[in-house]
Structures are given as structure tokens and as C-alpha cells.
């Protein structure tokens, strides 16, 4: 017990010394100060990286003198995320984006204490006074990718490498299944989960099992899929449909298309709303408003038959004008 008092004394001493020699931070009012809370890392080649690049794009557009960005990574659990969000709010950040559906709860708890700060999270739907909820319609792009897979598959077996059966993974898989079903009722979509978001070795093994079982098209979500993509690349003869961001740089010969989220549009919208003093709203990312995009990998585009592209284009138009609604699970 005695040595704890020693530590306390020294810590307090250090505290005073360090406080004394530290400078003061100038507060600037005109500058937008944006803090980004990420569950994974800025280089995960998936969900977190795509948002990070979106924010960076906005910052580049606005200029670094107009916008300051702070990033905190690896805050997958709500406890540490809550501490980070509170600290940013305390330090006077104007906009705090917590990039994950798991942060809804934390924001609802913190936001009322900081009415001047705009908070945002997603995937989510519950917006409040100063909470924005952004909501990528992952099922829409998934549907289009389902069409590609359904029309092009030769084995009629399509494998999904899922993380945990929840949130965006459900939306994506559900839309994907509908897309396949619409063009090729004989094809079988086999959905399996690794039970983890980041275990790339397990994802690779799951992809191998899918391929050994005859799958010639694969897709999946979360940062774990980089392992599966690489396994598909090494296996050869199969295609990967990527989500979150364009992952074709990992495997240019394998990743045939990608559903890309244009986060910069969301971030810009939040900044604009904040500057105009608007209250929080539900921001949808869809094909209709151009925040979602289906990209073909230019290297493989020639391998996609024109009729497939036409079918995708047609479905996309129907989704945009509302004649086709991709369903979400109901119960």
C-alpha cells in the first residue's frame, strides 16, 4: 500500500511539471474541427478506411486551413469509444463522426450534454436534435452484384464470407440473395460466417472451403475479407464481388466489381447542415442520390457479357426510380 502513495506523489509531481511546460492551444472559431471514431483502422481496406478516405477527400476540398481532422482508431468497443467522443466534445470539436452502428447508444447518451456539437453515426436510422444517422442502402448494390453473380456463375454455387450475422452484413446478404434469385433461381447462395470481424485467416479458410465446395463467385463484408480475397486470388478461376470500398487493388484479376460508398458526400452534407445550424437527420446513401456506386474493375470489365451489364443497368434504373425495392428482412 505504501508504494502506491509514492506513485501518486510522483505522478502528481510529473503532472504539475508537465502542465507547466506545456503550451496552450489556440482555439479558432471559423475552422471546422471534425473528429472521426473508427472501429477498425484507417488501413483496413474496408469499412473504416472507406470513411477515412471520404473525410480526407472533404478536407482536401475545403483546405486544411478550413478543416481540422482528428482520428481515433480501434475503438470497436463502446466503452473506449464513449471516452473518446466525450473528450473530443469537451475539446470543442464541432462534428464528431462515430463510424459504426454500435455507437448509436453512446451518442444518444453524450449528445444532450453538448448541444452545439453535431454527432453522426451509421449504419443507423434514429436521428435526434444533434445526431445525424447515415444509412447506406447496402442491399441495393448487393442486389446488383447478385445479378452479376447469378448470371455469370457456371457452377451455380455462390459463397458468402460473412463476419457476424448482424447489421450491414444482414442487409448486404439479404439484397445479394434477392439479386441472384431474380436472375437465376437455380443458383445457390451459401452464406457462412467466421464469427469475427477481423480474423483474416479464418476468412481465408472459409473462402477456401467455399471454393472447394464448388463456388465460383464469392463476396463478403467487414475487414476480414482481405484474407478471403487473397485466398480467391491464389486459388484462381473465381470472382470476388467487393463491398465497402473498391478492393480491386488487392486482386486485380479476381475482384470483378465493387459497391462503393461515397462517404465524402455524407460528410459534406453533415458539415453543411452543421454550418447552417440544422438539426440532425437521417441521411440515406442510395443509388438514387448518387452516394452509392457500382464500379466494374476496368481490367475485368471485358469479361462481363453485355447482357449482364444491361440487366444490372436496368435494375439500377428501377431502383433509382423506385419501381424496384430491394427488401430488407422483415421479422
Amino acid at each position: 500500500m505504501k508504494r502506491w502513495s509514492w506513485i501518486l506523489i510522483v505522478v502528481l509531481l510529473l503532472t504539475t511539471v508537465l502542465t507547466a511546460c506545456g503550451g496552450k492551444q489556440e482555439a479558432q472559431t471559423e475552422k471546422i474541427r471534425l473528429a472521426l471514431i473508427l472501429p477498425s483502422t484507417i488501413d483496413d481496406m474496408a469499412w473504416s478506411q472507406s470513411m477515412y478516405e471520404g473525410v480526407m477527400a472533404v478536407q482536401k476540398e475545403m483546405g486544411e486551413d478550413k478543416m481540422e481532422v482528428a482520428v481515433s482508431e480501434r475503438l470497436g468497443n463502446p466503452v473506449d469509444a464513449g471516452a473518446a467522443i466525450r473528450q473530443y466534445a469537451d475539446q470543442g470539436y464541432n462534428i464528431i463522426i462515430a463510424h459504426g452502428s454500435q455507437y448509436q447508444n453512446v451518442l444518444e447518451e453524450i449528445a444532450p450534454d453538448y448541444p452545439d456539437v453535431s454527432f453522426a453515426y451509421g449504419t443507423g436510422y434514429e436521428a435526434h436534435d444533434n445526431i445525424f444517422a447515415y444509412d447506406p442502402q447496402a442491399q441495393e448494390g448487393a442486389y446488383l452484384q447478385g445479378i452479376i453473380a447469378g448470371m455469370m456463375t457456371k457452377s451455380n454455387i455462390i459463397g458468402v464470407v460473412g463476419p457476424v450475422e448482424a447489421g450491414d452484413a444482414i442487409k448486404y446478404n439479404y439484397g445479394f440473395q434477392q439479386g441472384v434469385e431474380a436472375v437465376n433461381p437455380d443458383a445457390e447462395v451459401r452464406i457462412a460466417y467466421t464469427g469475427s470481424f477481423g480474423d483474416i485467416a479464418k476468412a481465408a479458410e472459409l473462402a477456401k472451403a467455399h471454393m472447394d465446395a464448388g463456388a465460383d463467385f464469392l463476396t463478403g463484408t467487414a475487414q476480414q475479407v482481405v484474407g478471403a480475397i487473397n485466398a480467391a486470388k491464389e486459388h484462381g478461376g473465381v470472382y470476388w464481388l467487393s463491398n465497402d470500398m473498391d478492393q480491386s487493388s488487392l486482386a486485380p484479376e479476381t475482384v470483378i466489381s465493387a459497391q462503393v460508398y461515397h462517404w465524402e458526400k455524407v460528410v459534406q452534407q453533415i458539415i453543411d447542415a452543421h454550418q447552417k445550424g440544422e438539426t440532425g437527420k437521417h441521411i440515406v446513401l442510395s443509388f438514387a442520390n448518387g452516394a452509392l456506386e457500382l464500379k466494374y474493375n476496368p481490367q475485368l470489365e471485358s469479361q462481363i457479357p453485355q447482357e449482364v451489364k444491361d440487366a444490372v443497368e436496368q435494375a439500377k434504373q428501377q431502383i433509382i426510380d423506385g419501381t424496384l425495392t430491394v427488401k430488407l428482412p422483415e421479422n
Binding site: 477498425s40 483502422t41 483496413d44 480501434r74 469475427s196 477481423g198 480474423d199 483474416i200 485467416a201 479464418k202 481465408a204 475487414q223 476480414q224 482481405v226 484474407g227 487473397n230 485466398a231 491464389e234
Partner: peptide, 18 residues
């Protein structure tokens, strides 16, 4: 083995409790 004999890549928390 995980990076060179299995996945041929590295990612955060590749060992995942192994």
C-alpha cells in the same frame, strides 16, 4: 506461418486468439 504459409498477408489482430 499465418502470414507466410496461410494467408500471405498481414492484418490487424491476425492471430485472433490463437
Amino acid at each position: 506461418f499465418l502470414t507466410l504459409g496461410h494467408t500471405n498477408m498481414y492484418a490487424d489482430n491476425i492471430t485472433a486468439g490463437r
